[in-house]
């Protein structure tokens, strides 16, 4: 298991992506699967910073752990912001995603991409922490 702890500010999104890119590659992910996972982690981390920490004027860390099993690679994001389950967020529906740009609702796209881009998504609230587990299946033989 590998671990990265950073202050929850937008400037650290790049470091979080780099951590997921590197650990995911070491686990055997590549191409679109790795990109989708990196995007999912980035979207949820950005959400935590903007709507968890900054909006509540309550700074905190983001803890990212990477774990590899025989069949999947799992990234866990932990924060101490107020409880928020991204899986319960109202996601854009198919009809929303064909609307012309002029009529688009600007919200919800990040969480939509995050949930859609992974094979496994699990939220827990434990000890005043939001814990989100995101997993991708590993290609056979990796």
């Amino acid at each position: 298991m590998k671990l990265l702890t950073v202050p929850g500010i937008l400037e650290n999104l790049g470091a979080i992506r780099q951590f997921v890119n590197q650990t995911g590659r070491e686990a055997g992910l590549s191409g679109q699967a790795l990109y989708d996972l990196v995007l999912a982690v980035d979207e949820l981390a950005a959400n935590t910073v903007l709507y968890g920490y900054e909006q509540n004027r309550q700074p905190g860390n983001i803890v990212v752990t990477a774990k590899t099993s025989k069949t999947e690679f799992t990234v866990t994001l932990e924060d101490t912001a107020p409880a928020f389950d991204p899986g319960k967020h109202n996601l854009p529906q198919d009809a929303d995603l064909i609307q012309p740009m002029e009529e688009r609702n600007i919200g919800g796209l990040g969480i939509y991409l995050a949930v859609k881009g992974v094979d496994g998504f699990k939220y827990q609230r434990i000890d005043q922490k939001n814990i989100v587990k995101l997993s991708k299946k590993l290609p056979p033989g990796s």
Partner: peptide, 19 residues
């Protein structure tokens, strides 16, 4: 190499303004 939904929102604003 990477663009998140924040980039999509920016693209949306650019599109609306340009149109």
């Amino acid at each position: 190499d990477f663009m998140s939904s924040a980039g999509l929102r920016t693209m949306l604003l650019i599109h609306r303004n340009s149109a």
